[in-house]
């Protein structure tokens, strides 16, 4: 599904990712943990194609397609979804309008026609209900005045609607209360499928109690420094990152 080899990337000439390798197979859930500033968000942005990030070496492919040869919107249409650590607000654009524009843009890019409005409405309603998102929220400006938890749920709604192949979740659990964490995790779990993979960036075991990862990675100073099973997350929770920070620096 996702294959990253020796990825180096910098921002404003400052190297952030320094030789990162990652292989995610269809259906797998990978967790990436690591200290603040280790480059987790940077990795997600580089994969999604944010400007300002310069890939200086290495490669990344999604189902064999070279991600770096595509624009950000093409990557989205190819099936890459990023749930933002800080979702953006767009005043005056109703959430519903945004969802429709996004879905239809992707459908068009894949050579499918626009989804007829009644079908679209039905689809959104279904998915929104499951996430406890009200009709009123769908009418409001995108993320405008949404609480932190509402913004995160809205990210999952978009993910559910767009049905991506690869979902990258950047600290989707931060700022969620216990109930919201459950709702969001259930939303994610409902999307787990044989040919859909997840990369879940988080600081906390509690998310991984709900979304059970197959593989856990530790990232430090722009590289994956250790890979293990779910037990690795527990170990980190108990011991912190001290070992890895030293190791990567060496």
């Amino acid at each position: 599904m996702l294959s990253i080899k020796n990825l180096h990337a910098s921002i404003e000439d400052k190297p952030i990712l320094r030789g990162l390798d990652l292989d995610v197979k269809p259906g797998e859930v990978h967790a990436i943990m690591g200290p603040n500033g280790s480059g987790k968000s940077t990795l997600s942005y580089v994969l999604a194609g944010k400007e300002d990030y310069e890939v200086t070496d290495g490669s990344a492919t999604l189902d064999g397609e070279d991600l770096f040869a595509m624009e950000a919107d093409e990557r989205a249409a190819a099936g890459l979804f990023l749930a933002f650590q800080y979702p953006l607000e767009i005043p005056g654009v109703a959430t519903m309008t945004f969802l429709k524009a996004a879905l239809n843009a992707q459908r068009r890019a894949r050579g499918e026609g626009d989804l007829p409005t009644p079908q679209f409405m039905k689809l959104v309603r279904e998915k929104a209900d499951g996430l406890g998102i009200s009709t009123d929220m769908l009418k409001r400006g995108l993320n405008v005045g949404f609480s932190g938890g509402e913004k995160k749920r809205n990210e999952i709604l978009q993910m559910a609607l767009l049905e991506p192949k690869l979902c990258v979740l950047d600290e989707t659990d931060s700022g969620l209360d216990i109930d919201a964490l459950k709702v969001v995790s259930e939303g994610v779990n409902a999307l787990r499928a044989k040919n859909r993979s997840f990369v879940v960036i988080t600081h906390y075991q509690r998310l991984l109690d709900h979304i059970r990862p197959d593989i856990v990675h530790v990232m430090a100073k722009g590289r994956i420094v250790r890979t293990g099973g779910p037990e690795l997350a527990h170990e980190l929770e108990a011991r912190g990152y001290a070992d890895y920070v030293g190791e990567a620096a060496a």
């Binding site: 624009e71 249409a77 979702p87 400006g141």
Partner: peptide, 30 residues
């Protein structure tokens, strides 16, 4: 229009021009 807003829209599949148009239409909605 911030680059971050544009990138957010593009990550959802809108082209850069579509993103700008959408944001502008939100701006003039009233």
């Amino acid at each position: 229009i911030s680059d971050d807003q544009k990138f957010y829209c593009q990550q959802r599949g809108l082209s850069e021009e579509e993103a700008v148009a959408l944001i502008v239409n939100g701006f003039v909605k009233d």
